[in-house]
Computed example of a mutant assay.
Amino acid sequence: MLVAFSDSDPITGPMAEIFKREMRGAQGVDHPVVRGAGHFLQEDAGEELADYIVKFLRR
């Protein structure tokens, strides 16, 4: 499981460590932090997020 975060998300940002620890399949994966994006990561940095997803799926 890939969990992507932004550096400016006031909602899920503070919960990043909990998500990485508790979500099934998220342990041991390098979860990206996108700079300059907010809570709606797909809207704020869609291309960068897509790149992370493609790289994750290719592994």
Rank of each mutant, 00 (worst) to 15 (best):
residue 54 V to T: 12
residue 41 L to F: 10
residue 1 M to Q: 02
residue 3 V to E: 04
residue 49 L to N: 08
residue 9 D to P: 02
residue 19 F to R: 04
residue 16 A to H: 02
residue 11 I to G: 00
residue 1 M to F: 13
residue 11 I to C: 01
residue 24 R to M: 08
residue 31 H to W: 14
residue 40 F to G: 05
residue 35 R to V: 06
residue 18 I to T: 13
residue 44 D to E: 06
residue 47 E to C: 02
residue 21 R to F: 01
residue 34 V to N: 03
residue 31 H to L: 08
residue 57 L to I: 11
residue 46 G to Q: 11
residue 55 K to L: 09
residue 21 R to A: 13
residue 50 A to I: 06
residue 45 A to R: 04
residue 4 A to C: 02
residue 47 E to A: 15
residue 39 H to R: 08
residue 42 Q to G: 08
residue 48 E to M: 04
residue 16 A to P: 12
residue 42 Q to R: 02
residue 45 A to H: 05
residue 26 A to K: 11
residue 12 T to Y: 07
residue 4 A to Y: 04
residue 6 S to K: 03
residue 56 F to P: 11
residue 7 D to F: 03
residue 50 A to H: 08
residue 17 E to S: 10
residue 54 V to L: 14
residue 17 E to L: 06
residue 44 D to A: 12
residue 34 V to S: 06
residue 52 Y to R: 12
residue 44 D to G: 02
residue 33 V to D: 13
residue 19 F to K: 00
residue 15 M to P: 00
residue 32 P to I: 02
residue 38 G to W: 11
residue 53 I to C: 05
residue 53 I to P: 04
residue 9 D to N: 05
residue 48 E to Q: 13
residue 40 F to A: 14
residue 50 A to C: 05
residue 10 P to M: 07
residue 8 S to W: 01
residue 42 Q to L: 05
residue 4 A to S: 07
residue 1 M to P: 07
residue 18 I to M: 03
residue 43 E to D: 13
residue 1 M to T: 10
residue 6 S to D: 15
residue 29 V to T: 12
residue 40 F to Y: 09
residue 1 M to S: 05
residue 36 G to Y: 06
residue 2 L to C: 07
residue 16 A to N: 07
residue 24 R to I: 11
residue 55 K to C: 01
residue 56 F to V: 02
residue 28 G to C: 09
residue 35 R to L: 03
residue 25 G to H: 02
residue 55 K to W: 10
residue 35 R to D: 13
residue 29 V to W: 04
residue 56 F to M: 07
residue 41 L to W: 05
residue 27 Q to P: 03
residue 25 G to N: 06
residue 19 F to V: 00
residue 12 T to D: 08
residue 20 K to H: 01
residue 8 S to L: 12
residue 21 R to S: 14
residue 17 E to M: 00
residue 18 I to Y: 13
residue 51 D to I: 08
residue 19 F to W: 10
residue 41 L to P: 09
residue 1 M to A: 15
residue 54 V to M: 09
residue 33 V to L: 12
residue 17 E to V: 02
residue 49 L to S: 12
residue 52 Y to Q: 15
residue 38 G to T: 12
residue 36 G to C: 06
residue 18 I to G: 01
residue 52 Y to N: 15
residue 8 S to G: 03
residue 9 D to L: 08
residue 41 L to C: 02
residue 18 I to V: 15
residue 4 A to P: 15
residue 42 Q to P: 00
residue 57 L to E: 14
residue 35 R to Q: 12
residue 24 R to A: 10
residue 48 E to H: 06
residue 45 A to L: 08
residue 53 I to E: 03
residue 20 K to W: 04
residue 17 E to G: 12
residue 11 I to D: 15
residue 52 Y to L: 08
residue 55 K to P: 11
residue 23 M to C: 07
residue 6 S to N: 09
residue 46 G to I: 10
residue 5 F to W: 07
residue 22 E to F: 02
residue 35 R to W: 01
residue 58 R to M: 06
residue 49 L to A: 05
residue 5 F to P: 10
residue 5 F to E: 01
residue 29 V to L: 10
residue 25 G to Y: 05
residue 20 K to T: 07
residue 7 D to Y: 03
residue 43 E to N: 09
